[in-house]
Design a protein around this nucleic acid. Structure first.
Length: 423
RNA sequence: GUGGACGUAGCUCAACCGGUAGAGCCCUUGGUUGUGGUCCAAGUGGUUGCGGGUUCAAGUCCCGUCGUCCACCCCA
């Protein structure tokens, strides 16, 4: 094998690509039903866009970006997530001039230089939605509702929605200094990584799986209990709204998302059978991001979900559908090859049709047609050619008939319909 | 980035303590001059991921490298 795909990337073969298409269609349908319109932005952006929006202290920026210089020495980066680009496009195209909330969705590849493992890739696909221009808690509810409906419409069950509030910069700052103080007191009991987290991002300590750190955790103050009145009210409204809409969820005060821009609401959706990479999606409110990107102060909320993981979760239950076309044309002999192509053109008006040009024996041709799941074989050989006929073989019933060349589409159509044809 | 497991035919996998690579499926052909999905028979297919080392001898042991998987980390 001479070449192989880059580490952490995948080839999508037809059977899987077809499932992908269905999922894609279902998600677009739901997204558009909620009033979100697709936005397509470049796959790469100026590096600084991600550094500023995602946050220079995050893992994404510090070690996971595909950054390169183009021929003029500009630093560009393959997008590691979608929100930054949407915000950039929102500002660049002056979409905020129109009053009210703008709703966008996107679907496409993202890139992170992570170490691959099950459910984690270097090129992966995300679907995401952003509602820009509303700071109301009801908008948070809509976004969470949208994500859970998106997954629900695909047939996914047993999802766990977890919600938290990380406060606004004001109450978070006050809380963080309190947290630092508490951590300093327990410093000796913490693991090495958590020791360094105290200065940089003390909230991350809550992510630690270390036994000792977990013990300390129970004695730490929770951000959840240090929200200012406004954030507290906002959070309570979100929770009440989810309950009212019948969206099962639980509060998880430990949720600390990997991007710095989140304010107030943060949430994740998990599918536990996935194992270590069980997060299907997540998101939250980012009231400061538009301003940080050079725009006017503009509140916003959004989510993103990983398509591979959704697909994987779906695989547990869904059955494989045949990919091969229901009609196959089998030319016998060189003289029949081009006429077979012509014949196939007509048959495509009835159902997807393939031509087997491998030139093997009829026995072999029929065998592969049957294996491939075709319903009808249309045989075109010397005998048929001279009589201006074709042989139409029903591969499911094992019967065949000859039909005038001119009546072939009608004959095939009748046959497919007899089988409860899908045409 | 850290730790561990693994990599043998197109696919799924075997091969003892190091002794010169095998099965099932698939594919091809024949049984049937142009009739499949069953059956019978025969056949094609391998630089054992790649590179080096130890050894009379390496799929097997050692080192490196690439890749996959698992866990950490992080998230989607």
């Amino acid at each position: 094998m001479r070449f192989q795909r880059p580490r952490g990337t995948q080839d999508l073969l037809p059977a899987q690509a077809q499932r992908w298409q269905r999922l894609d269609a279902s998600m677009r349908h739901t997204l558009e039903a909620y009033g979100y319109g697709e936005i397509r932005t470049p796959v790469f952006e100026e590096t600084q866009l991600f550094v500023r929006s995602v946050g220079s202290e995050t893992d994404i920026v510090q070690k996971e970006m595909y950054t390169f210089n183009d021929r003029r020495g500009r630093s560009l980066t393959l997008r590691p997530e979608g929100t930054a680009s949407v915000v950039r496009a929102y500002l660049e195209n002056h979409l905020g001039r129109e009053a009210g909330v703008r709703r966008f969705y996107y679907l496409g590849p993202m890139f992170r230089y992570d170490r691959p493992q099950a459910g984690r890739f270097r090129e992966f696909f995300q679907v995401g939605a952003e509602a820009i221009g509303s700071g109301d808690p009801e908008q948070d509810i809509e976004i969470i509702d949208l994500l859970s409906m998106l997954l629900h419409d695909l047939g996914l069950k047993d999802l766990e929605v977890e919600v938290n509030s990380v406060g606004h910069p004001g109450c978070r700052q006050a809380y963080e200094s309190e947290l630092r103080a508490a951590l300093e007191r327990e410093r000796g009991k913490l693991c090495a990584t958590c020791g360094t987290r105290i200065e940089g991002n003390p909230l991350r300590v809550f992510d630690c799986k270390n036994e000792a750190c977990r013990g300390v955790m129970s004695r730490l103050p929770l951000l959840r209990n240090h929200l200012c009145d406004a954030c507290e009210t906002h959070h309570a409204t979100v929770l009440a709204g989810l309950a009212r809409l019948g969206i099962p969820h639980k509060e998880n005060p430990m949720i600390v998302r990997g991007l710095d821009y989140y304010t107030r609401t943060a949430f994740e959706v998990h599918y536990p059978p996935l194992g270590a990479q069980s997060a299907l999606g997540g998101g939250g409110r980012y009231d400061g991001l538009v301003e940080a990107c050079g725009g006017p102060p503009t509140p916003a909320v959004g989510f993103s979900a990983g398509i591979e993981r959704v697909l994987f979760a779906l695989e547990q239950t869904s059955a494989e559908a045949p990919v091969e076309p229901p009609i196959v044309v089998l030319p016998l002999g060189d003289a029949a090859r081009v006429p077979a192509l012509e014949l196939a053109r007509e048959l495509r008006a009835v159902a997807p049709t393939a031509v087997d040009l491998s030139g093997r024996s009829l026995k072999a041709l029929l065998r592969s047609a049957g294996r491939g799941g075709a319903h009808v074989a249309v045989i075109l050989g010397d005998k048929e050619m001279t009589r201006a006929e074709v042989t139409v073989r029903d591969l499911l019933a094992g019967e065949q008939e000859t039909s005038p060349r001119t009546g072939v589409t009608a004959a095939v159509q009748a046959l497919l319909q007899r089988h409860g044809g899908e045409a």
